[in-house]
Amino acid sequence: MRGKLIEFRNVSFRYTEELPWVLKDCSFEIYENEEVAIIGHNGSGKSTVAKLMNGLLFPEEGAIFINGQQVTQESIWEIRKDVGMVFQNPDNQFVGTTVQDDVAFGMENRGIPRAEMVKRIDDTLSAVGMLDYLMTEPHKLSGGQKQRVAIASVLAIFPQVLILDEATAMLDPKGRTEIMETITSVQEKHQLSLITITHDLQEVVRAERVIVMNEGEIWDEATPREIFAKRAELRKIGLDVPFIANLSDALLKAGVSITNEPLNQRELLEDLWISHSRM
């Protein structure tokens, strides 16, 4: 049984007293080595949730716990040892003049011995396929390469949870696929919890659980299959559904029998084959 890693207890937040609440009485839990996608339309509060997890913001009401420790001004530096975050624009995270320097930065701040730093730099850059760029200046890298380095920089501090806040939004489909494959490989190797805040439906489908945000509240949380079965309701709150779900609807309307809720092309083909075999 997996232990509880992150807990939001009745969390509410607004940026100023004059502005409306961005989050309203939000409660949920995330467990060790779990992959969770957080989705919602723009302004739904999902990116605010990410910043609250990492102590970039603090709740106005309610409480947040990481590994049983409440996130406060006093505990935040300890909390950030367990929580790593990769943003949409990796340029905002670069501080080193070379890839090596950038990956080393977080470890230097934590006083990690040099020999251990060298090992972690090699290990994390190898994990994301960027070891050959050790002495390259970050601004000379492509968008996908920059994101790989940003991920390596976070992984080098050995966090227990990795948060991707729209981290693949600026990449083309091939780049998004490569980054998510890299992250999945790293997650399995290091037993990380992974929280993906995204609009990319393919990233959502691969998660174990989905938390849907709407107007600052938790609209629903369930498996991807259960969430995308509510296609009409999702569309009403401004969210899209995977192409395969739309295709399944069209096939059902055309009289084709589909027994499950397929999430990808393979599942749809298997469903159609089984249905056809029974005829």
Score class of each variant (00 low, 15 high):
172 D>I: 00
219 W>R: 09
230 K>E: 15
248 S>C: 13
182 T>P: 08
171 L>H: 09
241 V>L: 06
215 E>P: 07
219 W>L: 05
186 V>D: 13
245 A>G: 07
195 I>E: 09
210 V>F: 10
228 F>D: 03
210 V>K: 13
180 M>H: 09
249 D>W: 03
193 S>A: 14
188 E>C: 05
220 D>I: 07
182 T>E: 07
213 M>S: 00
242 P>S: 04
179 I>K: 01
175 G>V: 06
163 I>F: 12
203 E>D: 15
247 L>R: 04
168 T>Y: 11
230 K>Q: 15
162 L>N: 01
185 S>F: 07
218 I>K: 06
213 M>C: 00
223 T>G: 09
186 V>P: 02
247 L>H: 02
196 T>G: 04
163 I>M: 10
161 V>W: 09
187 Q>V: 11
225 R>L: 14
162 L>P: 02
182 T>H: 13
181 E>D: 15
161 V>G: 07
184 T>R: 15
250 A>G: 10
170 M>A: 13
249 D>N: 14
186 V>Y: 12
251 L>Q: 00
164 L>R: 10
250 A>D: 07
242 P>C: 08
189 K>S: 13
167 A>T: 05
185 S>P: 04
187 Q>S: 09
202 Q>H: 13
174 K>H: 09
166 E>S: 05
216 G>E: 04
237 I>D: 05
242 P>F: 09
237 I>R: 01
224 P>L: 06
237 I>V: 03
176 R>I: 05
245 A>L: 15
190 H>G: 00
160 Q>S: 15
195 I>D: 10
179 I>V: 08
240 D>R: 12
191 Q>K: 12
237 I>G: 02
206 R>Y: 08
185 S>L: 13
215 E>C: 12
223 T>E: 04
245 A>F: 15
221 E>C: 09
219 W>P: 05
246 N>T: 14
248 S>G: 05
180 M>T: 01
167 A>G: 10
243 F>S: 14
214 N>A: 00
214 N>M: 01
239 L>Q: 01
198 T>H: 09
240 D>F: 11
218 I>C: 03
202 Q>L: 13
190 H>E: 13
206 R>H: 08
190 H>Q: 08
173 P>M: 04
185 S>A: 12
227 I>N: 00
212 V>Y: 02
226 E>Q: 01
206 R>I: 12
169 A>D: 06
181 E>N: 15
188 E>W: 02
198 T>G: 01
250 A>Y: 10
202 Q>V: 06
189 K>M: 06
247 L>V: 04
169 A>L: 14
185 S>N: 11
190 H>F: 14
189 K>D: 07
192 L>P: 02
240 D>P: 12
240 D>Y: 10
219 W>N: 07
230 K>P: 09
230 K>W: 03
219 W>T: 05
243 F>V: 14
177 T>S: 12
207 A>H: 07
214 N>Y: 00
239 L>S: 00
159 P>G: 05
172 D>F: 00
167 A>Q: 04
178 E>Q: 11
232 A>V: 07
199 H>V: 02
248 S>V: 13
224 P>H: 04
202 Q>G: 08
186 V>E: 12
233 E>R: 14
218 I>D: 02
223 T>W: 06
249 D>C: 11
167 A>F: 05
174 K>R: 12
161 V>H: 05
178 E>I: 06
252 L>R: 15
